[in-house]
Write a protein that binds this DNA or RNA. Structure first.
Lengths: 194, 194
DNA sequence: GTATAAGTTGTCACAAATGATAATTAATAA
DNA sequence: TTATTAATTATCATTTGTGACAACTTATAC
């Protein structure tokens, strides 16, 4: 018997805006004013719907981590039948929407390197990373049944690390050969399981 | 015929302090006041000797990059005769002073992800990264004369990416097995050149 | 239409970061 | 000792980020 709540939608768009700000400006420089401008609302509304700065940071960590997990699972699932060595390169480098590369990943990385200042963020990021490694590890095991589980974990870890590092270098204007070789590297790691 | 200049020493300790602040607080949260406190001087002195914030950021990028290049070259040189597969793991993970891991690397990474906002930083970081890859690539070529130069560049890139990613995950409380497997990974990549 | 709960706007005070500059102190050379 | 140059301290105004709260508006149920 009252006005309907916009809480959920507002929170989502605040998180999306915060994520974009983080990737543009870095975590510490992504102020409430910036977030509000990016989300097209007033700062008071950001505070009203998402709480104070610490709340926002914790929430955005969960937002980014969940987005990541969802995208990963969805892509893993849609490539289950592709048993060539290209599947992983496709999943990691080719079939994601641009927005993931341009905003989600940089934000993920910014949160990662800030996590020692935000315990809650640290827990969520750790959980996300370990889930990622464990999941890819299992998938590798499924595809390379003759390889040991330790080998699979090693390769999974390597692939994920390379993927993250590759992304954080996007800002630099690196020689295109380096970018190409980075993808070859994924295949090289996969072949080492044969 | 005047008071002797402390410019050089002061600049060095300001850079060292800035580096520590960046690794503790992140680039944007490392304020002039924080730097001054860390260096044990007043903010006015920081400004006097190192200029404004933008100057400081550009200088610290060069400081960190140069430190990196020096340490790398020095370690590469002292391991030239070690032709086992352990050499690279030693160089990357074992024989560096703690300070490098705790301050230089996190700062390096923070500068990397901020570089799209600081053109001068971007140039210096790119230069440092490409030098690093090219140098390691050459060293691999020397050790594995039968491998193609493309193979060597791939492995060099992989090793460096894994090394960087490994470091940025130091903040997380990861399962120790993951850490160990990360080092195994380096050896796995090296063996793929055999 | 009226009460109710929620969205929305505006404004205040406080603290922190930066840039700029004047005033003071200290170390050298002649 | 004095002139010179640089270090050092102190203080200013401006801007920006944040938290808090009061006032107003809007959409629903009854």
């Amino acid at each position: 018997m009252a006005r309907p709540s916009l809480q959920a939608e507002r929170q989502q768009s605040i998180m999306a805006a915060f994520t974009r700000c983080i990737s543009k400006l870095g975590l510490e420089a992504a102020s409430l004013d910036e977030i509000a401008k990016e989300a097209g609302m007033q700062r008071s509304l950001v505070r009203h719907f998402a709480g104070n700065r610490e709340d926002l940071v914790n929430q955005v960590a969960d937002y980014v981590a969940s987005k990541f997990e969802n995208i990963w699972r969805q892509q893993e699932h849609s490539h289950r039948e592709d048993l060539t060595n290209e599947w992983l390169v496709d999943v990691l480098f080719s079939t994601k929407p641009e927005a993931v590369y341009r905003t989600m990943l940089p934000a993920f990385y910014a949160l990662l390197s800030a996590s020692h200042r935000y315990p809650t963020v640290s827990v969520r990021m750790t959980q996300c990373f370990e889930l990622y490694v464990a999941d890819l590890s299992l998938e590798l095991q499924r595809r390379h049944s003759q390889a040991s589980s330790d080998d699979c974990q090693q390769v999974a870890l390597g692939v994920i690390n390379i993927y993250f590092a590759w992304d954080s270098l996007r800002g630099l204007e690196l020689n295109p050969t380096l970018i190409r070789n980075n993808q070859q590297l994924i295949k090289r790691l996969l072949s080492s399981l044969k």
